[in-house]
Computed example of a mutant assay.
Amino acid sequence: MKERNSTFKELSAKQKLQYIWDYYKIHIIVTVVLICAIFSIIKTIKNSNSADLYVAYVNVAVDESMTDELESQSGLIISSYRDLLITEDPSGENLQYAYASSMKLMSAISAEKLDIIIGDSFAMDNAKGSDYLLDPEEFIKANNPTLLDEFEPLFIRDDAGKPYAIDISGFPPFSEAGYTEPIYLGIIASDTNTESKLSLLSTL
């Protein structure tokens, strides 16, 4: 150990930096990603204290015009987490981004700053597997049964027949966006912003 420390001290500043990078690269990357995710969620929370509803878009590209349209149609102030990526086997180039997205979702849920997830089938399956979602059928029955007839045919069910998401591909602005895969909506299992969640569903 003494020999190793002595050798390190003899290196030039550039060589020391290269040595640290070579041996601690993974630790540095993970730490930076974690710090960025934490600062991102803190910034979002600070900038959205007056929001009626918090929506995360996972594995689905949306632009500002789409989120503005949804906000305008619903009459809600919506704070959006956009461009989140969740993948089963991320490649090296998007591993850090996927990790940051997962951290952002967990942080938002822990802070009770996430109400709705909109994404592809993998995003919904991942959210369900993480126990983020509630049963949309039970939610609608308990809070506004008049919506049930419209949404029941659109429920996505697990192998046991229990609903966990809603296919919203046919509703604007998603129906007009030209997606090649279905788009789904999942309701976060929390007691926050119930009326706003219902308002969004009513708008759709």
Rank of each mutant, 00 (worst) to 15 (best):
P163K: 05
T203P: 07
P163I: 01
D159G: 09
Y57D: 00
K25V: 02
I38F: 15
M124C: 05
E10C: 08
E64H: 14
N94M: 12
N143Q: 03
A98E: 14
D135L: 06
I41E: 15
L114F: 02
Y99F: 03
L200C: 01
V58Q: 01
Y184M: 00
Q73L: 12
D22P: 00
K162P: 06
A56N: 09
A100E: 02
M124G: 05
S40L: 08
S130F: 07
L95M: 11
A111I: 02
V55L: 06
I78L: 00
E181G: 01
N126Y: 15
G161V: 02
F8E: 04
S199N: 11
A56W: 00
N49R: 15
E181L: 02
D83C: 09
N47S: 13
E10D: 13
A98M: 09
A13H: 13
S12V: 04
I28C: 10
K46W: 08
I118K: 09
S80M: 00
I118S: 13
V62A: 06
I42K: 09
L201Q: 01
T44Y: 08
G119A: 04
L204C: 04
D120F: 00
I38H: 13
G75Y: 03
Y179F: 12
M103Y: 09
Y23H: 15
T44G: 05
A127M: 04
I109Y: 09
L201N: 03
E181N: 02
L76T: 13
T44R: 10
E150S: 12
G129C: 05
A37F: 01
S190N: 13
D52C: 05
E93A: 10
P163N: 07
E93D: 15
L201H: 00
L70P: 08
A127Q: 00
I187V: 07
I29N: 14
S107A: 14
D115C: 06
I38G: 07
L95W: 11
I187W: 05
F8I: 07
K43H: 11
T31I: 06
Q73F: 10
I188E: 09
